[in-house]
């Protein structure tokens, strides 16, 4: 197994508050890695740092062995690193078909129709993104990350705000796509059912530090994880 995405000594502070405190993370290629932790643990901050969105952070990032620490967002994307957003981040007044086409132009047509089909967006291509339902917008957000068949996918709560039914469906779609395309995934999710059902390994973040890491079984039994986060859910 080779390491697809590796972050070392990642730190980010807001004023005096360390949202991310010297975190090391290595995601193996082909793996689905869960990233969990209570609200404010620093999960989104970690995704932001890895994807190039954050400013004023420190550490090193490698993608397939290549140092991408200083690369811009768009250059990371062209090297196969894509992400979705916790707060829906789409192009409001543009037709959904147009946004996906524009995205695929930058990244190559590969998998565009697969994405449209898998995320059942086909009937919405002519609709403006701000005219469709929230669930549709969440799938569009995900589709924009999937276009061009990235190698490593960072997902920040893809199921946030979806109904139980919708999020189970989404988990199924994800599992299917990941298997078919051999994607590497780092997924943040509060829905433990989704996390435990699709992840190979899980990293637990707490107050900006890594609290534990292991396979789902280990994490479920890990005493400090249970007390700090899972509580009665486990």
């Amino acid at each position: 197994m080779t390491t697809a995405l590796e972050g070392r000594n990642l730190s980010r502070a807001f004023g005096g508050f360390r949202a991310l405190d010297d975190v090391d993370i290595a995601v193996e290629s082909g793996e689905i890695r869960g990233l969990i932790g209570p609200n404010g643990a620093g999960k989104s901050t970690l995704i932001d740092v890895l994807s190039g969105r954050a400013e004023n952070w420190s550490g090193q990032i490698r993608l397939n062995g290549e140092d991408i620490t200083r690369l811009k967002v768009q250059d990371r994307r062209h090297r196969g690193l894509a992400r979705s957003f916790q707060r829906t981040n789409i192009f409001p007044a543009i037709a959904i078909g147009t946004q996906l086409t524009v995205a695929s132009r930058a990244l190559g047509e590969t998998g565009l129709s697969d994405v449209v089909e898998a995320l059942t967006l086909g009937h919405l291509l002519d609709r403006r993104a701000d005219e469709v339902s929230y669930g549709d917008q969440r799938r569009l957000d995900l589709a924009l990350a999937l276009v061009g068949r990235p190698q490593v996918l960072l997902l920040d709560e893809p199921a946030a705000g979806l109904t139980v039914e919708e999020s189970l469906k989404l988990a199924e779609i994800l599992r299917d796509l990941v298997r078919r395309w051999g994607l590497t995934v780092l997924i943040v999710e509060h829905d433990m059912e989704v996390i435990f059902s699709i992840c190979d390994r899980i990293t637990v973040l707490h107050l900006g530090k890594i609290l534990a890491e292991g396979d789902p079984g280990e994490i479920r039994r890990h005493p400090s994880v249970v007390s700090a986060y899972l509580g009665s859910q486990a």
Partner: peptide, 12 residues
């Protein structure tokens, strides 16, 4: 419409 997301789909 969204400068940031445009960068995240691979455009300068």
């Amino acid at each position: 419409e969204n400068d940031e997301r445009a960068r995240f789909i691979g455009y300068g």
